[in-house]
Design a protein around this nucleic acid. Structure first.
Length: 210
DNA sequence: TAGGCCATCTGGTCCT
DNA sequence: AGGACCAGATGGCCTA
């Protein structure tokens, strides 16, 4: 299916990380201009008298190429976002480590967020125990400040996070297990994901996925 | 070689 | 109408 010129094997193992990594770039990509007009080859008025059907076919072809191109770019943006997510994820990164799969990235991100939330709660509790008089001041309510603050699970100083659903599998789902006997040195395991709220004791190490 | 993961194409649906 | 989003199909690459 080589219907698109741009479909050359640009795959390799990493999908064109043009600007991957930086959240800033991620947002830039997210907010980027709405799909440059991308003229098809020949542009308008290429064929003058090719017959109505031929012209219609060509128009359809160009339309198809345009849609394909948009879809490709959309997927590239998605992959960039995933790369950005991987970049801030607590797992061993390096040339010798296999890149997290998309699914693993999402699952690990969820676990990481839950772990951070739990840590934050613990620290807050500790702080209030050490300094009973020093109350943690609530974040001034400013609805327009950040839409995240309105999210149900937002961990501001207002409400405790909702209990995450408990699943039978580990925080990364049923896909990830430690290979028995071999201690994992990745930062995720070092940090102790077993403290995740609402999860079983099953450690979740992305390196053990394969 | 089988299975996992991925990129790409494609058609459908929804929204502006 | 055009664009975004989604899911299924397909084929390639890589690893155990």
């Amino acid at each position: 299916m080589d219907s698109d010129v741009a479909s050359t094997s640009s795959r390799a193992s990493s999908p064109e990380p043009e600007a991957a990594g930086s959240p800033q770039l991620l947002f830039e990509a997210f907010c980027r201009e709405p799909a440059a007009p991308q003229q098809g080859p020949g542009g308008a008025g290429g064929k003058l008298r090719g017959g109505r059907k031929a012209q219609s076919d060509q128009q359809q072809q160009e339309q198809r190429l345009k849609v394909n191109s948009r879809e490709r770019r959309r997927m590239h943006d998605l992959n960039q976002a995933l790369d950005g997510l991987r970049a801030v994820m607590p797992y061993a990164q390096g040339p010798a480590v296999r890149k997290l799969s998309k699914l693993a990235t999402l699952l690990l991100a969820r676990s990481y967020i839950l772990a951070l939330s739990s840590s934050l709660q613990d620290m807050r509790r500790l702080l209030s125990e050490l300094h009973p008089l020093a109350r943690v001041r609530p974040v001034p309510a400013s609805p327009s400040a950040c839409s995240l603050a309105a999210a149900p699970g937002y961990l501001g100083f207002r409400a405790a996070p909702p209990e995450p659903p408990r699943t039978a599998a580990g925080p990364l789902g049923p896909f990830y297990r430690h290979s028995s006997g071999s201690p994992c040195l990745c930062s995720f395991c070092q940090a102790g994901p077993q403290e995740l709220p609402g999860t079983a004791a099953a450690p979740a190490c992305p390196r053990a996925s394969k």
